[in-house]
């Protein structure tokens, strides 16, 4: 009996390093390192085709709190004035010619290419995912994340995290059956000012889109507070006034 208790205690003691990392806290820390809770940013989204041809979009984004994100396309001319809004699981697209917001879904893509709407209008990872397991090896954490609900675009994520900076290096987006949908690569860590040091380039490719690549480049990320009413359908046509 005493032997059994000692064996269990030893087991627990030896296993302790595996639980040393609080996954949820780590994920929240990664979220805060990637962006402040409320901010504005300018990004360029580039879709690169297998033959090297490119399509570029310039996109202004604002975010508030855990679940409010809105964006405005400022270029090219054919996309200018289009706005997107996300409130939790709800997403809308406003096209000036159509004149009213229409609901869109997270798996659609307003820009084509490999990024879908949930990538472009991304929320904090900790809002959408629970941490199932964290492995530590070679100066990295490997985090296994599981979607909190079925409305999240990817059922599972495998996130490789740089230990010293607590920033993601690579994320694999998987289905429930662990089939790879796409991989996100975080590159070119840059100081954006205001204490924001994060990757300036986010690249993605997908086995579902062989030869295609999409890239998101951040030019400005700045802390900024917004009223809740900015994140409403009524405000979508007026988003330009925030810039």
């Amino acid at each position: 009996m005493v032997r059994t208790i000692i064996a269990i205690l030893t087991g627990i003691f030896l296993a302790a390093p595996a639980f040393a990392v609080d996954g949820t806290r780590l994920l929240q820390e990664i979220d805060r390192n990637l962006s402040p809770e409320s901010y504005e940013s300018h990004r360029k989204i580039i879709n690169i085709e297998p033959d090297g041809r490119k399509k570029e979009f310039i996109y202004y984004t604002v975010k508030k709190g855990r679940d409010k994100v809105a964006g405005l396309f400022t270029a090219p001319a054919s996309e200018k004035g289009r706005t997107t809004l996300r409130l939790g699981d709800n997403m809308w697209l406003y096209i000036p010619n159509v004149g009213k917001p229409v609901r869109i879904t997270s798996l659609q893509s307003v820009v084509g290419g490999v990024f879908n709407n949930s990538d472009i209008l991304s929320l904090d990872y900790a809002v959408e995912y629970n941490v199932e397991n964290v492995e530590e090896k070679d100066g990295e954490y490997l985090m296994h994340l599981k979607a909190k609900t079925r409305t999240v675009a990817y059922d599972r994520l495998k996130m490789w995290v740089q230990k010293d900076k607590t920033l993601p290096v690579k994320i694999e987006c998987l289905t429930e059956a662990s089939m790879l949908i796409k991989t996100l690569y975080f590159k070119d860590v840059k100081d954006f000012g205001g204490g924001i040091v994060r990757p300036a380039v986010l690249e993605t490719d997908s086995p579902l889109y062989k030869g295609y690549k999409s890239v998101m480049i951040f030019a400005k990320i700045k802390k900024r507070e917004f009223k809740d009413e900015v994140f409403t359908l009524t405000f979508m046509p007026k988003m330009e006034s925030l810039r």
Partner: peptide
């Protein structure tokens, strides 16, 4: 069409400067 295989991406802040007026269309 011009195309490039270069892996270097550029994004100049001047590309996002806002003007008080806008003219566009098709």
């Amino acid at each position: 069409l011009p195309f490039s295989f270069a892996e270097e991406y550029t994004f100049d802040v001047s590309e996002v400067e806002k003007k008080p007026y806008h003219i566009g269309g098709y």
